[in-house]
């Protein structure tokens, strides 16, 4: 009867709660090895994942000419996705804000809110003559006169409208600039 009691599992488990663990303490990896691996990972990520930009387009008052040419970048002839560039539906997923139009007063708040939703670091690109400085709409009561009036701009792509080739050139320049090689 007493021997049988000793063969039960739960008293042993209860004892294990108060006795020292059987597992060894973890080894401490050499600091140099950690540093070297981190450097290699960063390089690999940059090369494999870094050549990619998610673009959120915002029309801040354009006549839709710029939108036509921006959309054309997606057609099979320009095929911007082969460069790792793609348009995303939410600013929260974006690396780049591609903004057109002279910045109407009625779009200012929407643009600023979109920019706030875009995680840092982000690029802001002003595409088209209107976005650069207001273009022919400069001086109207209804426009601010270019994207720079509301946001710091990293890249200007002039043209009325800029061609898909010029737009693509600008986007590729951003890819190069972020060091993807």
């Amino acid at each position: 009867m007493r021997e049988g009691w000793r063969r039960l599992l739960w008293p042993r488990l209860a004892r294990a709660l108060v006795s020292p663990p059987l597992t060894d303490a973890p080894p401490v990896p050499p600091e140099e090895l950690v540093q070297a691996l981190m450097a290699r990972l960063e390089a690999a990520a940059q090369a494999r994942l870094g050549r990619s930009l998610a673009i959120r387009q915002v029309d801040a008052g354009s006549c839709n000419g710029c939108e036509l040419e921006i959309s054309a970048m997606q057609n099979v002839v320009y095929d911007l996705e082969r460069f790792g560039l793609r348009f995303v539906a939410s600013p929260r997923h974006a690396d780049v804000l591609l903004v057109t139009g002279p910045l109407t007063r009625n779009m200012r708040e929407a643009l600023l809110r979109t920019a706030e939703c875009t995680p840092e670091p982000k690029w802001v690109v002003a595409a088209g003559d209107c976005a650069v400085d207001g273009g022919i709409f400069k001086g109207s009561y209804a426009v601010e006169g270019g994207i720079e009036a509301a946001l710091p701009v990293d890249l200007l792509i002039p043209g009325c409208p800029p061609t898909p080739a010029q737009l693509l050139e600008g986007m590729l320049a951003l890819l190069e600039a972020q060091g993807g090689g």
């Binding site: 008052g61 002279p102 109407t104 009625n106 779009m107 022919i136 709409f137 109207s140 209804a142």
Partner: peptide, 11 residues
């Protein structure tokens, strides 16, 4: 609508 109002006529 109206977000794109640029003041065409005035200009």
């Amino acid at each position: 609508l109206g977000y794109l109002h640029k003041g065409h006529i005035g200009l």
